[in-house]
Design a protein around this nucleic acid. Structure first.
Lengths: 116, 116
DNA sequence: CGGCATCCAATTCGATACTG
DNA sequence: CAGTATCGAATTGGATGCCG
């Protein structure tokens, strides 16, 4: 398609490193589904589990912690009788939207392509 | 941000399924780096290994096969004395560019953010 | 309800050695 | 050069039970 940019090793390795950086943040089977779900608004722990098909509580808990550590998700404990915890994307977390949206878009096209 | 779209379960689950479809195709530690590298043009097996930091021949081979099965990568064997094999993105593989580009873009921003 | 600890199964990954 | 085969290590994932 465009073999010309193929020969700029600097741009190339910068590109690769950037991709790897993103992959590191988004590593794990559930990060992207979690962010995708939270992009629709804040959710409680149990609601998140219900909204993400197949995820186990342990995994949700673990990946939420990693997302929180990286500043993508904010965790809020509410003062209710049985504890309630709400998760929501931070502003930084929302900056991942273009990636999520492109993945959702491609997946939709792909499914249509496979179907016919 | 926008809790309104939070209450459309159909749009929501379609979105999640599309994301999952994409994730399935791109599953594995090396798929995205491979596609990212091939997006700069066709490459031979050894060149690919050199361009993707840390990948082992076994993993490259395996993930290339999966990408080929899904029609994202085309494999061409050349009639040279020691065998030469070239890999390149198919047109369909190139359709993943927006995702890759968004990931590269976000990773670049993220690195700048972390640095300061 | 949210979430940690434990144990166990499955999968992934990587180093090494070998082949056409 | 472009892989494959094998082994073992590491990571991941899930089920269960317990706790505040």
């Amino acid at each position: 398609m465009n073999d010309n940019i193929n020969h700029d090793p600097v741009a190339c390795s910068t590109h690769h490193r950037a991709i790897r950086d993103t992959m590191d943040i988004l590593a794990g089977k559930w990060k992207i589904p979690i962010i995708g779900s939270l992009s629709f608004g804040k959710k409680r722990f149990m609601v998140l589990i219900a909204s993400i098909d197949g995820i186990a509580a342990k995994m949700l808990s673990k990946e939420l912690q990693e997302l929180e550590l990286n500043g993508l998700v904010k965790r809020t404990v509410l003062n209710t009788k049985p504890v309630t915890v709400e998760y929501e994307l931070t502003e930084y977390g929302h900056s991942l939207r273009p990636i999520i949206n492109e993945m959702a878009f491609w997946g939709k096209q792909h499914r249509e392509r496979i179907m016919k």
